[in-house]
Design a protein around this nucleic acid. Structure first.
Lengths: 220, 220
DNA sequence: CGATGTGAAATGCTTCACAGCA
DNA sequence: TGCTGTGAAGCATTTCACATCG
């Protein structure tokens, strides 16, 4: 269910602002979906609401966390410590949601040894040792396009089970498995598309403000 | 149609590797969707295929570009020149797809004056002048959470019509308009979700590799 | 009463299957 | 003959509407 992360964020924000209880109508209006849809979605996790009152915000967050598997710790390695690699390493969400940066790798001698957060950047050659040490769940590729394929191959060979490719190149890993790249600008493409197509109620008097939510398509 | 950007990327990659013609079956298998679905999707843009042969790759890319509005130039301003701001400014996709970085803004004196690409970082106070000068389509918020709301308000006030918020905070702009944040780590949340839920055919012998595609949910 | 939880209707999307054209 | 383009069937998702419960 792709809407759960959206609900979760809104709930977390509501929690931060002191809301203890939330109705399907409020949550729906904030998520821009029908209230009935919200109830259907949430009912798949169990019956947590209390009729007449609504849902307990904190409890609901906990349930969604459980459903999304966020009570795990997901150890990851970031390869390529340029601007994007650094941004990822610092990312709020990583720390907050159980994604733990276990290693930072690069081949540039001027970067190796640098400390980002609590992690020291090491040479990419150390990958096999690191994977052997700590079972890494996720490899993040943040290298230039030219290096990406080699990095992907080595990550797989070392036993990393999931890749997230930010290098601007489509990679192949094993027979038939195509690894697309996640490019920040694609958000804007899509935004411009909606912008040009859809009419926005009240847009004459109100600035057209858009936000982009993310969902995933997985390639098996 | 959320699949168009996916097709487009694959087509661009095919073009780069010298493919001049592509069948719905090939494109479908690369995009991991049914061939009939591909044909239905593409038929909405017009009838560009030639029966018996397939689609002309380059022509198809051009048509999708047109459909997505990528033949426009989208001038944008990035506010907050930290790691993420820099990564965005350098982003391949921006340059390649008509998103033009018109201005880079920050308040930190040690950053102001720095040249990134061809653009010099200016003080955030220059925003009104810049917007007056050049009609900016998109404001990208890449500041710390604490500054984000103020930046959003000023962007709107200055007449910027679309915002993309990367600051880890939910913002409000005008009455009722909620501006969520785009957090890179949400990809991983979703990935872990799929990882724990779905069985992957052949995963016993093959490393479980995942790639994330992006689609958008817009909030009106 | 007010808001959930959920059958049932409505709507939209995906897949099939095949006619039709290069 | 091979592959597109597209009605029609099949399937899933969304919405409605209301019984139900705190």
């Amino acid at each position: 269910m792709g809407r759960l992360p959206v609900y979760q964020r809104i709930l977390e924000e509501l929690l931060r602002s002191g809301t203890t209880t939330v109705s399907s109508e409020l949550l729906g209006s904030l998520a821009r979906v029908n209230a009935a849809k919200v109830r259907k979605d949430l009912s798949l996790l169990g019956s947590f609401g209390t009729r007449g009152a609504g849902y307990d915000t904190a409890f609901l967050v906990a349930q969604i966390d459980r459903e999304l598997g966020l009570n795990h710790v997901w150890p990851m390695v970031i390869v390529g410590i340029g601007n994007l690699g650094r941004a990822l390493a610092h990312s709020q969400g990583f720390i907050a949601r159980g994604f733990q940066v276990m290693a930072l790798l690069d081949t540039d001698p001027t970067v190796i040894g640098e400390e980002i957060g609590d992690v020291v950047v090491r040479h990419f050659d150390a990958l096999p040792d690191i994977v052997a040490d700590q079972s890494l769940a996720i490899g993040v590729i943040a290298t230039p396009a030219s290096a990406a394929q080699g990095v992907a191959d080595l990550l797989v060979e070392s036993g990393v089970h999931s890749l997230l490719n930010f290098a601007p190149k489509v990679l192949t890993v094993g027979p038939e498995i195509l690894l697309r790249y996640v490019d920040l600008s694609i958000e804007l493409q899509i935004m411009s598309f909606y912008q040009s197509r859809r009419s926005i109620p009240g847009s004459e008097v109100m600035p057209v403000i858009r936000s982009i939510g993310l969902t995933s398509a997985n390639l098996d």
